[in-house]
């Protein structure tokens, strides 16, 4: 890798272990010897069976967890706790019920000390981007699940992070909404191409979105294979029904299937 001046948005995970040591129980090795590099502006999806440490990896990247061994670098500095350079989007939208949509989107900015009026202007631009400017004054309770998740993404984008970390953001949505949302995400991402790390259970979702799909193996979690996805962008949803697409999905599924069966006690 040539470490030029444009380091913002690069993520490097170098030989990382993460061991949980719960009180009065045996330690759990969640991740072991994990190496991963994500290029600036790259869209990487992470898939793997339950227990492969996908979410743990994302929390390490964000800085909410600290590796037991190894280092994580974001841009040119080591990750040492959450930072507004990296924004996190969870499966549940986690919007503040007591704040209006626009104030939710402005949340990260006001926490950073920006004046409320300026933060709201910036938030409105993000709401326009996700197509929800008309809902600015509503409370989250008044929106559908898909709309709330778009607000959540707008909130993450509003802090203008270099890296966007998404932890199964569409898992709580129905299948149709989910399809549209992933197309929407690509459209939004294409406007300024931030680095994205996207965790999902859904293999077709990963292949549709990603430049590369990282397949994790379970217990302990480590990189099983990194599958490149070279389809041209912009991608239509119809891409999902083509043969080359199906072959990549099948390949990734074959990597994971053994472990899913194992976790079910099947052989």
């Amino acid at each position: 890798m040539n470490h030029g001046p444009n380091e913002a948005g690069r993520l490097v995970v170098d030989d990382v272990d993460l061991v949980f040591t719960p009180a009065r129980r045996d330690p759990v090795v969640a991740l072991e010897n994990l190496d991963l590099e994500v290029e600036p502006g790259e869209f990487v999806c992470v898939v793997g069976a339950s227990g492969s440490g996908k979410s743990t990896l994302l929390r390490l990247l964000d800085g909410m967890l600290t590796p037991t061994k190894g280092t994580i670098t974001s841009g040119s500095a080591p990750v040492a706790g959450p930072s507004r350079d990296r924004a996190m989007v969870f499966q549940s939208d986690n919007l503040l019920p007591w704040s209006t949509v626009i104030d939710n989107v402005a949340y990260g900015l006001t926490l950073g000390g920006m004046r409320r009026s300026r933060a709201r202007q910036a938030a409105l631009r993000q709401l326009e981007l996700v197509g929800l400017a008309d809902s600015a004054g509503q409370y989250p309770r008044e929106l559908s699940g898909g709309m709330r998740q778009r607000v959540n993404i707008a909130r993450a984008l509003a802090v203008d992070p270099q890296v966007l970390l998404l932890d199964e953001p569409f898992a709580a949505l129905d299948a149709q909404t989910r399809e549209i949302m992933s197309a929407e995400l690509l459209r939004i991402w294409s406007t300024d191409r931030k680095t994205v790390v996207f965790i999902t259970h859904q293999i077709d979702e990963a292949v549709y979105l990603a430049d590369r799909v990282v397949v994790l193996s379970a217990r302990p979690g480590t990189v099983r294979e990194i599958v490149p996805v070279d389809f041209e962008r912009p991608r239509e949803l119809s891409l999902k029904r083509t043969d080359p697409f199906g072959r990549i999905v099948d390949h990734i599924w074959s990597l994971i299937e053994v472990e899913v069966r194992g976790s079910l006690g099947l052989s």
């Binding site: 964000d62 909410m64 959450p82 930072s83 507004r84 924004a87 996190m88 969870f90 549940s92 986690n94 503040l96 949340y107 990260g108 926490l111 950073g112 802090v159």
Partner: peptide, 14 residues
């Protein structure tokens, strides 16, 4: 208060 909301706040550097 929901732990998830607190975690979100912290992830935004609160």
């Amino acid at each position: 208060a929901e732990p998830a909301l607190i975690e979100t706040a912290r992830s935004y550097g609160a």
